[in-house]
């Protein structure tokens, strides 16, 4: 579950890839936490284009990361969500809480 980050003018884009399930979520959360801590972005863009599978474990990662950004006065959005992950996010009505753009 590799994570790559790019930061520009305090906006960080984090590209997630692979399968985000319970097995992968803990490490992903840790890597996201570390990236946010060291780069202090004001806006965080999570790019899910490379995500081949996601379940509710991914929802918890998105919600915790968003809470973290809000606590430091920042914001988060989710972009390039593939169909399978998109169906999971829609079933949980996450688009009502987080700005999401679906592929």
């Amino acid at each position: 579950m590799p994570l790559t980050c790019q930061t520009e003018l305090r906006s960080m884009t984090a590209r997630l890839s692979g399968e985000i399930d319970h097995h992968a979520a803990r490490r992903l959360m840790r890597e996201l936490d570390q990236a946010i801590e060291s780069r202090c972005p004001r806006t965080l863009v999570l790019d899910l284009e490379g995500v081949s599978f996601m379940d509710s474990s991914g929802i918890a990662v998105l919600l915790r990361t968003r809470r973290r950004m809000l606590e430091s006065g920042g914001s988060m959005e989710v972009v390039n969500v593939p169909p399978q992950a998109g169906k999971v996010l829609r079933a949980a009505n996450l688009q009502k809480i987080v700005p999401i753009s679906f592929l």
Partner: peptide, 13 residues
Amino acid sequence: AERSGMGFTIMES
């Protein structure tokens, strides 16, 4: 906080 409570909702839908 590690769970979202959406598992059954997703299985059902």
